[in-house]
Amino acid sequence: MARSHNPVSRFGLWAVFVILAVLPLILRGYQLRLVTEVIIFSLYAVSYNLLLGYAGLLSFGHAMFFGTGAFAVAILLEHFAGLPLLLAVTLATAFTTATGFVVGCLLLRVKGTPFALLTLAFNALFYAIAVKWSSLTGGDDGLIIDPPQLDLWLLTLDPNKGPDFYYLSLAILGPVILFCWYFTYTAMGRTVLLMRENEDRMRFLGYNTLLARLSLFTLTAGLAGLAGSIYSLFFAFVSIDAISIETTTTVLLMTFIGGTGHFAGPILGAGVFIYLQNFLSELTENWPLIMGVLFILMVLFTPGGLVGIIKGAAQWTASRRKTPDLRKGAKNRHAHSGS
C-alpha cells in the first residue's frame, strides 16, 4: 500500500531529482527549452489525469483553465507594473481556481457524456470571450509579456534566460507535481478513486460525493491554471491558442498516449508528445494528422497507453523468469487500487 517505502522508487526519485538539477550543464539553448516545456505540460497533463484517470471524469475543456491562467498572469503583469513574478503567478492561479469553482458548480450538475459535452461547450465559450474581449486579451494578436526578474535573498533569476527559467519552473512545478503524487494517497485522493468505482455506495457511507467532485474539479482547474501561467511566462507571450480546443486536445493526447492508469503516465506522455511533435513538425506540416492517427490507434489497440505497454512487458518478463503468480498479476492490473 505505501509505495513511498519502496526503496527502488525512493532511489529512482532521488536519481530523477539529481538529473533534473544538473541538466542545464548538459543541455543548452533549444534542448533545454524543450525540457522546460515538458515540465510545464507535465503538470497540465497530471492535473488532467486526476480528472480522467483517477476520478473518471472525461473533460474536453481543460484548456479553459490552462488558458485562463495563461491570460491572467499576462494581464496582471501588463496592468500592474512592478508586480512581483511569484505574486502574479499566485494571483493567476487563485483566479483560475475560483473560475474552476464557478464552472464546476454549473457543469457538475450532470455526469458522464453530458458532462463531456458541456466541458467542450464551455471551452468554446471561454475561447469566444477571449477573442471578443480583445481590449483585455489582445484578441487575435495575443499579449506580449515582459516577465520581471525574480529577486530572492541570494540570487536573482532572469526569466528571459533559458537555464534560469528552467530552474524557476522546476522549483515551482516540481513540488506541485510531487504534491499531486502525494495527493493520490491522501483521504481525498482515495475518495475520488472510490467514487469512480461506485459513487452510489460512497453516498451511503457518509460521503458527500457532489461536493467531493466539485472540490476535485476546482483543484485540477487551479493546477491547470498554474501550468498555464508558467507557460505564458516561458514564451513571454500568450495567444488565444492557449485557451482553444486544440490545447485541450493536446492535453488529452498527452495523457492518453502516456497512459491514464498510472501517476507517471501523463508525465511520460507530455515528454513523448513534445519530442514527437518537435520531430514530426520538422518533417511535415501535417504533424497533427499523424498525432491524430497515432491517438486513434492507441485508443483501439493500447487503451492503457505507454505505461500500459511497459507494465505489460514487465509482467511478461516477470512471468518468464519465475512461475506465474496469478494473484500478483491481477493486482498489477489494478494499479489504482493501491495494493
Binding site: 494517497y185 483521504a187 481525498m188 482515495r190 457511507l205 460521503y207 487500487s337
Partner: peptide, 22 residues
C-alpha cells in the same frame, strides 16, 4: 480498502487533502 472507506468516513477522514488514511 473497501472496508477502510467506511471506517475512515466514520472518523471524518473523507476528503482531507493532506492526511493519508493508510
Amino acid at each position: 480498502d473497501n472496508v477502510l472507506a467506511g471506517v475512515r468516513s466514520r472518523e471524518g477522514l473523507r476528503c482531507h487533502y493532506l492526511r493519508r488514511p493508510f
